[in-house]
């Protein structure tokens, strides 16, 4: 049986690779449907027919789409990300710092929300049907059913406008003390945490409840183990696989949340860069940002799948 795990994981990685190819093609196709437009937008008032034709050749836009796709993929693979249409800076330079800021935001959010969400999910499952459980469930359904920007605007309204505890905008200037850091990151992190915790709490609760309904848990209860012992010693170790899977999947929801949160709080991350690039139709920048996002997303979902394979004792 041991040989099955490597082959399952290899299969999953192969699927991930195939997915990456389809994704890159889709991203490229979606942004390359209207090539003429780009040149005319770039030239603006100076769009004489000769200038348009000249620039189109210079940008390789006169080549067939598949050839351009190949060029672009080869560029990505060798680290040549191209130059931005809008300000003619190398894209690698534009993205570098922004990516670090976004990862910092995502990392802090994960650090903050994972322990809280797991605690809430496990305790809600242990006290299934209680008022506490129903409150947690109602709140998580509520957060899932509203758009992220509503969570963000509500947070600003409550903590910045009414209570005046925190600044509404986050500007990542030099922060020296931990207190300042907390104040600046508080609003974006809180909003993102709400969004991903809701998913994580629901999935964790479901996984623990499933484990609690198994015969061996009934046996543990019958032999007189305390409720805490039943949950922590008997149910939890068997629910670890689904829970870890739930954490990785929930973290992939960070992406959608990050786009809204960086925009609303004016946070200088890569999602804000991409939204701004859409406004100026800076296609190379959009393509690169989109690929980075898809890569992170795929990394998280593939990790979730592989962890689920590794955590399944029947495959060991």
């Amino acid at each position: 049986m041991k040989a099955r795990i490597p082959s399952l994981i290899a299969g999953r990685l192969l699927i991930a690779l195939f997915t990456m190819v389809v994704v890159s093609f889709t991203v490229f196709a979606a942004t390359a449907i209207l090539p003429g437009d780009v040149v005319e937008i770039l030239l603006g008032q100076a769009a004489t027919p000769e200038a348009v034709a000249g620039l189109r050749t210079a940008m390789h836009l006169d080549e067939p789409a598949l050839v351009r796709f190949g060029h672009w993929l080869a560029g990505l693979a060798t680290g040549d990300l191209g130059t931005s249409y809008a300000n003619h800076l190398p894209i690698a330079q534009l993205i570098g710092g922004r990516l670090v800021s976004s990862l910092k935001l995502a990392g802090l959010t994960a650090l903050f929300s994972v322990p809280i969400a797991l605690t809430l999910g496990i305790t809600a499952a242990a006290m299934r049907g209680s008022i506490y459980d129903r409150t947690v469930s109602m709140l998580t359904i509520g957060v899932i059913s509203v758009p992220e920007f509503m969570v963000a605007t509500s947070a600003v309204l409550i903590f910045a406008v009414w209570l005046k505890w925190l600044p509404a905008l986050s500007i990542a200037r030099d922060v020296s003390t931990f207190g300042e850091l907390l104040k600046i990151y508080a609003m974006p992190i809180m909003t993102l945490s709400f969004v991903i915790s809701a998913q994580m709490i629901r999935m964790t609760r479901a996984a623990v409840i499933e484990a609690l309904q198994s015969p061996y848990v009934e046996m543990a209860i019958l032999k007189g183990a305390s409720p805490a012992r039943v949950v922590l010693r008997h149910a939890l170790p068997n629910a670890i696989g689904p829970i870890v899977n739930a954490v990785a999947l929930s973290l992939s929801y960070l992406l959608g949340g990050v786009i809204i949160v960086e925009t609303i709080f004016n946070y200088p991350g890569i999602a804000k860069l991409m939204v701004d690039a859409v406004a100026t139709r800076d296609l190379p920048l959009i393509q690169t940002c989109a690929m980075i996002f898809c890569l992170v997303y795929l990394l998280l979902t593939t990790t979730a799948d592989i962890l689920a394979i590794l955590a399944n004792p029947r495959l060991r």
Binding site: T26, A30, M274, A277, R281, A290, F293, C294, Y297
Partner: peptide
């Protein structure tokens, strides 16, 4: 396989890319 691959593009990102292109 094909539709699963499409499914692994985050939805908001897909929207952004299409709006940027079209």
């Amino acid at each position: 396989r094909l539709l699963d691959a499409l499914n692994s593009i985050p939805s908001k990102l897909f929207g952004l890319v299409v709006v940027a292109g079209v």
